[in-house]
Design a protein around this nucleic acid. Structure first.
Length: 298
DNA sequence: AGCGGTCAAGTTGAT
DNA sequence: ATCAACTTGACCGCT
């Protein structure tokens, strides 16, 4: 019933996603830049195909694709159009094969852009970069068939209601292809489910419920209450997050992720639901496999 | 082959 | 005022 999701990479499998840095790319001429990036994009497309095959064979139902899948795509100096890469047509063919394979094997694909994507910011350049980044993620999503681009609500800036209103008005102006994939996640420092649930209803954006963050930053709502309310915000299969604290629940730093999931951290309320649960744990596929096996025994 | 320095971007909260 | 933490790697370039 529960579809477990693997995040971004493998620790035991020979499946590698490549990336580069803007500093390195800048040293090359434009043609060399595009050639280098093309090579990385091609390798990443092949790695995605292998990832889909692996997940399907191991009862892993979802794969979160790395944000650097097309490296430095939106960088102001070295960014590029996908179509301008040498061999773009060949790469796209492989990506369309990924889409077909994921559909045939029922592997859900998702994205989680990093912390620089901030729709609640008051700064116009930060906002522009954020929207560019979301549009890049959407461009890939449309090709490979990813249905979720999950982001955090960003900073509070001393006034969370105002920040959320800014984010809401930006969301209303996003292209439909972007907006229809967007979800917002409760974080461990600023925005709780209690903050976000009314926002999600008002702006028709689903809540990606991270139960670990909720435990780090409680808001008086129970796991059951948030689970039920979050499910109602989704018009497709809900997507939630699970992780366990590296150093246990006692002591200060509960935020850092453990290698594996402690089965006791997996909410009993989730056991029989039709939901995707992305596993955020450092042992990657090994942690998903262990959790799957433990859940089968229950 | 192994290792050290480096990497686009924002915000928060601990020191 | 500075810096680690957030997802922490993975990369290049030197030995």
């Amino acid at each position: 019933m529960v579809r477990l999701g693997l995040c971004r990479m493998f620790v035991s499998q020979p499946i590698k996603f490549r990336t580069t840095t803007a500093a390195y790319i800048k040293r090359l001429g434009r043609l060399e830049q595009l050639q280098k990036i093309s090579t990385l994009c091609l390798e990443n497309a092949l790695a995605l195909y292998k990832s889909i095959e692996y997940c399907a064979a191991q009862h892993i139902g979802c794969f979160r694709v790395n944000s650097q899948f097309w490296p430095v795509k939106t960088h102001p100096d070295v960014g590029y159009e996908f179509a301008d890469l040498p061999g773009a047509g060949e790469i796209k063919k492989i990506l369309l094969e990924c889409r077909k394979r994921a559909l045939a094997l029922n592997i859900r694909l998702s994205f989680h852009p990093d912390q620089f994507v901030l729709l609640s910011t008051a700064k116009t350049d930060v906002l522009r970069n954020s929207v560019d980044e979301l549009e890049y993620h959407t461009e890939v999503s449309e090709i490979i068939g990813a249905d979720v681009i999950n982001i955090h609500a960003g900073g509070g800036y001393g006034d969370k209601p105002s920040a959320l209103r800014r984010m809401g008005s930006v969301i209303r102006k996003l292209k439909k292809t972007v907006r229809s994939r967007l979800s917002v996640e409760n974080d461990d420092r600023v925005y709780t489910p209690r903050d976000l649930l009314p926002f999600c209803e008002e702006y028709d954006i689903p809540l990606a419920y991270d139960v670990h963050h909720h435990r780090c930053l409680p808001d008086g709502l129970s796991v059951k209450q948030v689970t039920d309310a979050a499910i109602k915000t989704w018009d497709r299969e809900p997507l939630f997050h699970i992780s366990s604290p590296r150093d246990g629940w006692r002591g200060g730093k509960t935020l850092r992720h453990h290698d594996y999931i402690d089965i006791r951290d997996f909410p009993s309320e989730w056991g029989s639901l039709n939901i995707t649960v992305e596993v955020e744990a450092k042992a990657k596929e090994l942690s998903v496999l262990r959790l799957y096996n433990q859940m089968q025994k229950l």
